[in-house]
Computed example of a mutant assay.
Amino acid sequence: MSDIARVLDQLGGIGRRAQVLDRGVSRPDIDHALARGAVIRVRQGVYATPAVDPAVLSAARHGGEVACGAALRAHGVWVLSDEHPARSGANDRDHRPMPRLHVWMGPSGRQHAHAGCRCRAHHEIGDRPAGFGIVEVLLALVQYAVCGTPEGFFAALESALQLGLIPQGGLATLRSRVSEHLRWLVDFASDQADSGLESLLRLRLHLRGITLQSQVEIAGVARVDFLLAGRIILEADGRENHERSSKRHKDLLRDAAAAAQGYETLRFDYVMILFRWDLVLAAIEGRLAVLQSRQVQDDAARLQDR
């Protein structure tokens, strides 16, 4: 006779009745564990331990696994948020509806209605049958390529690459499974970006015909996010930078050290890159124009001196 909680832990915290019965758990054991709260009934014939992630429980109630952007977040991948700072106050959060949970059902999985269900079902083919839990990163990227924006997909892909979560041959598989108009993003992606903000910055400037050097080491300054035209440093600061005064102080010291060597630093935060891109682009193109104008003047002066 086996303890159902231990058996469920072996199954990843959640499983079907047939699975636990096959492992020696009796029906009275299941009823007793339910009565004392050692396990919970997810839906008819599916049980879980109380420690299972709520998103995994919701996906199991619907009949499958956490998918798409939620799965990517669960794996630690940077996923673009559509939350605007003007709507991010505590009171606003209390009244916003919960985001839709995306659930992978497999090609022929059956959906189950449940309380509060706003689930979006996915039926892609995977490397294994759908079960309960969280889909693998590669399948989640295939799903996010459909549900997210192109630049959101690109940022998530670069984050997965940087984290080493794409298996051998995974990029070729991904390229074959996304829409044709997204395949160039798979080819353009690299594993150099330290954050999704860097990915967005590089992609958006590339579309403007501006090429950046990524993760450049500058003596006396350390590594910078981007170097433009050999003189302009671009830094993409995450949300946490302005919440920690010590980090802000170190950034100012780096900027001063860079200025002492003739570099100019343009530093943009999360809100600016996501919600004030017009200002970010104007700043970058404005400084680049000044630099290029100076170069033209210097070249003309050198010609006159000959």
Rank of each mutant, 00 (worst) to 15 (best):
S2M: 14
S2Y: 14
S2L: 07
D3L: 12
R6L: 15
V7T: 15
D9S: 14
Q10W: 14
Q10G: 15
I14T: 11
R16S: 10
Q19C: 13
G24W: 13
G24F: 12
P28L: 03
V42W: 00
V46Y: 06
D53K: 09
P54L: 07
A55E: 08
A55Y: 08
L57C: 08
L57G: 02
G63M: 12
E65C: 15
V66R: 10
G76F: 09
D92T: 14
D92V: 14
R93W: 09
P99W: 06
R100K: 10
L101H: 12
W104V: 06
W104Y: 05
W104N: 05
M105T: 11
P107S: 05
G109P: 05
H112L: 08
R120L: 11
H123E: 07
G126Y: 09
A130M: 02
V135E: 05
V135G: 05
V137L: 04
L139N: 11
V146Y: 11
C147Y: 11
G148S: 02
T149P: 05
E151G: 10
A156N: 02
L163P: 02
G164Y: 02
T173W: 09
L174I: 01
E180Q: 11
L185A: 05
D191W: 04
L205W: 03
Q213T: 05
Q213Y: 03
A219D: 15
V221Q: 00
L228E: 07
A229V: 04
G238D: 03
R244I: 14
R254P: 00
D255Q: 08
A258D: 00
Y263S: 01
L266R: 01
M272R: 12
L274F: 13
D278H: 06
L279K: 00
V290M: 05
L291C: 08
R294V: 04
R294W: 01
Q295P: 08
A300P: 00
Q304D: 09
